[in-house]
């Protein structure tokens, strides 16, 4: 009774499916190798490290992708039903052990390699001279504050105080206004909602990221840096930009209706131009 009937039409189906998989691999590999769509340039050392780590991962994932899709395609075509008998195999412990250990080593290895760049922004403190800038998100704009000559940010009004002022008729009072009684705030330079973030090139910058209302996210593609602005938290990140230019800063966390249009620019100026700009702002602030 050992009939070995082949399934009709299986060659055509097998061929199409394996060719599709090959095509998938070819197009994907082409698009990644040709870099038709790619990251914008990186403008920090950290960004370069990210790119390197991305490439490492891409190579490993790419090899796995190509091998497993092609392996699948091969198996599909090679073992289509041609009336043969399938081999009765239940498994192979050596092979299981080999691929388990191989993937484990690969994954954990990658994870550990990725550590150094992460450590750069998150484990290491900025150099003492880093320039502090406060970045504040609100629906749907960014505002900024420089600490001024003293290098110290002034205090905000307390909520109670703002509420009291509102009760006295000043409806614009807000816990996000500087407390006039704090001397440190006198020289703070506040760039109101809608301004651009201006920083000097080749100087370490530490951002103090906050939010007034809901969660937003600071993101500059060229910095390879993203950090949520979480209300109630003060989160610090630091970086040193090595190229001048103007870069987009699109908000990266859903913050309501206007999320898609919440953006501004990061302007990186040469030191002398930055100083000039700063002087103007200080003058404007003094008035």
């Amino acid at each position: 009774m050992l009939r070995r009937r082949a399934c009709a039409g299986s060659t055509a189906v097998a061929l199409i499916l394996s060719l599709l998989l090959v095509l998938l691999v070819a197009i994907t590999v082409y698009l990644f190798v040709a870099k038709a769509y790619w990251f914008p340039v990186s403008i920090t050392e950290f960004g370069d490290k990210v790119d390197i780590q991305f490439h490492r991962t891409l190579i490993i994932a790419g090899i796995v992708f190509v091998l497993s899709q092609l392996g699948l395609a091969y198996a599909i075509f090679r073992f289509r039903d041609r009336g043969q008998k399938a081999k009765y195999v239940e498994g192979n412990n050596t092979m299981e052990a080999v691929w388990t250990i191989a993937t484990l080593v690969m994954f954990v290895g990658l994870g550990i390699l990725a550590r150094s760049a992460w450590a750069d922004v998150h484990f290491r403190d900025p150099a003492p001279g880093a320039m502090k800038i406060e970045v504040i998100g609100q629906q749907f704009q960014w505002s900024f504050r420089f600490p001024g000559a003293d290098g110290v940010f002034g205090r905000y009004k307390t909520v109670e105080k703002a509420l009291a002022e509102r009760a006295h008729g000043d409806q614009s009072a807000s816990p996000w206004q500087l407390d006039a009684t704090d001397a440190a705030g006198k020289d703070d330079i506040v760039l109101g909602a809608g301004s651009e973030l201006v920083i000097p090139v080749n100087r370490e910058v530490e951002l103090w990221i906050r939010s007034q209302d809901v969660t937003h996210s600071f993101f500059v593609r060229e910095l390879r840096l993203k950090q949520d602005a979480v209300p109630g938290l003060l989160i610090k990140v630091h970086f040193t930009a090595t190229q001048t230019g103007t870069y987009e800063m699109p908000c990266a966390e859903l913050c309501g209706l206007g999320h898609y249009r919440m953006h501004t620019n990061l302007k990186i100026l040469p030191q002398d131009q930055f100083d000039k700009w700063m002087a103007e702002e200080v003058a404007a602030n003094a008035q």
């Binding site: 299986s10 097998a14 198996a75 041609r82 195999v89 498994g91 691929w99 993937t103």
Partner: peptide, 26 residues
């Protein structure tokens, strides 16, 4: 998270292993 790829890899390789030397009906 990276290590969760390991059991996933085991599954993937075993699926391909199941297809090897088989008789596939489409």
């Amino acid at each position: 998270t990276m290590s969760i790829g390991v059991p996933s890899a085991i599954k993937t390789f075993n699926w391909i292993g199941t297809l090897w030397d088989s008789k596939i009906q489409f």
